[in-house]
Structures are given as structure tokens and as C-alpha cells.
Computed example of a mutant assay.
Amino acid sequence: MKKNIGNAMALYPTPAVVVGVRVEGKATWTLVAHVGIVAHDRLLVSLHASHYINQGIKESGRLSVNIVTEEWLPKADYCGIVSGHKQDKSTLFESTAGEEGTPMVNESPLTMECRVEDVYACNGFENFICSIAHTYADESILDERGKLDYNRLKPVLFEFPTYQYLRTGSVIGQCTEAGKQYEKSQA
């Protein structure tokens, strides 16, 4: 029997990402774990309204979403504990401007450059609904067909409420195949 544990957010883990934007002409970064898919070409980035980076996102209407891997997790974690209000984080990462002008972390093998389509305020958070303008992928994480291979990417996952980082797991099957096998077993 299941136990009611209240209104616990139980959709974790989610990928850890570093969001990049320009504020007052300088790149700034923050670690974000409140990200999600809104549609096949839209994503959500949720940040507390007090974050320094929010002003740059709202002014430019652009941001980059940089997938965190284990190789640069220490710097990504650090940029999440240091406030842009108090410290200049512009030189924390080597970066390149994307076609939309947003700073992108060079160490990240996968970056999505996004346009903010809407902002939804909720319980002290600003939720940026973004369309994906461009996706930049290092060739080392692409398969032979030029498609993203998450076994090569190995994104870091964040689990809440324990505040732990996790490694991604192994492939356990192809989407729809388990359902087809189940259907056959019921015939």
C-alpha cells in the first residue's frame, strides 16, 4: 500500500544546466535544476525572482542552456552558490557567443540557445518559457547519423530534495518496444 507523503515534488532527477546571459554587457552564469520540456520545441527555465541573472534574461529575451557533465561539475556547482549580485562571474567559463548573441559555456558539449517567449510568475519564481533557436553539439556526442547520443553526453542529473548529483544510467530499451512486447504477451 502506498503512503501519502504530502505534496512532494517527485519529478526529479532533472538535468543540471548552467544558464548564460549578458547583464550590463558581461556574461553571467547560474546553475539551474528547475528546467523542463513544455513542447517539442519549447523548454522552461525556472529561477527565483531574486536572481541577478533574471534582469539580463528579461532585457535581452535570450539565454543559453548549457548541459552540465561531470568534467566541469565543480565550476558549475560553484556558479550556483555565488550570487551575481556580489561577484562578477563573467570569467568563470571560457565562452563563445551564439548566433543570438548569448554567451555559451565552451566546456559544455551541448548548448541550446533560446528566445524567451513568455514569463510566468509563480510563488516567487520567474518561469521563462523559451523556444529553442539553435542547438550546438560537440561532434564527440553525436552518433554516426549526426544525432545526439546521451550515452556519450552523460549529463549530470540533480535530485531534489536530497540535493545530490547523479550519473545517467544505462539504456534499458527502445521507446514503444516494451509496450509492443507486452501487447504480444496479452494476445
Rank of each mutant, 00 (worst) to 15 (best):
Y136S: 05
E94F: 12
L43T: 06
S170W: 12
A49L: 09
R152P: 00
A27D: 14
V32G: 08
C175N: 09
I5T: 00
Q174N: 11
N123P: 06
Y78V: 04
M1F: 02
S83A: 04
E100K: 11
R22V: 07
V18Y: 13
T162G: 11
S60F: 10
Y163G: 07
T91L: 15
S185Y: 00
S50Y: 15
S108G: 14
E99Q: 06
G36S: 04
S46Y: 07
Q87F: 08
E144W: 05
G61M: 02
R22L: 14
C175A: 09
H51P: 10
G20K: 12
R62N: 09
C79G: 09
E107F: 12
C130A: 07
E24C: 03
Q174P: 06
R62Q: 09
V119D: 09
P15E: 08
S95M: 13
V65N: 10
R42S: 07
I5R: 05
S50F: 14
S90N: 07
T111R: 12
V35W: 05
V17N: 14
M104A: 09
A178D: 06
A76D: 12
L43P: 14
L31W: 12
L142V: 00
S95E: 13
D143E: 01
R167Y: 15
G173C: 01
R152H: 07
I132Q: 09
D138S: 12
S46T: 08
G124F: 04
P155G: 06
D149T: 00
G56H: 05
Y12W: 11
L142M: 04
Y165E: 05
F125I: 01
G80Y: 07
A49K: 13
Q181K: 01
Y150A: 07
F128M: 03
V68P: 11
S140V: 06
H34Q: 13
I5C: 03
G179Q: 01
R115D: 15
N66D: 03
A178C: 02
S170C: 08
A39S: 14
Y150K: 03
A187Q: 13
R145Q: 08
M1C: 04
T176M: 14
T69H: 01
E70D: 14
T91H: 14
P161D: 11
F160T: 02
M9P: 13
T168E: 13
G98P: 10
Q55A: 13
S185L: 00
D118I: 00
S170M: 11
A178N: 02
L92S: 15
H134N: 15
I81K: 15
I37V: 13
E94Y: 15
A16T: 15
D149V: 00
K180A: 00
M1P: 08
T102I: 07
G146C: 02
C79T: 10
Y12H: 10
P161G: 03
A27G: 12
R145W: 10
L47H: 09
L142N: 06
I129S: 03
S131K: 02
A27P: 15
R115I: 07
G98V: 03
V17H: 07
D143K: 01
L142I: 00
Y150I: 10
A97I: 05
S108T: 10
L148Q: 06
A16Y: 15
V65L: 09
V32F: 15
M1K: 02
H34M: 14
T135G: 09
F160R: 07
K154V: 03
R167K: 15
V35C: 08
A187D: 05
T111Y: 12
N151C: 06
M9N: 11
A16R: 06
G84I: 02
G101M: 04
T162M: 05
W29C: 02
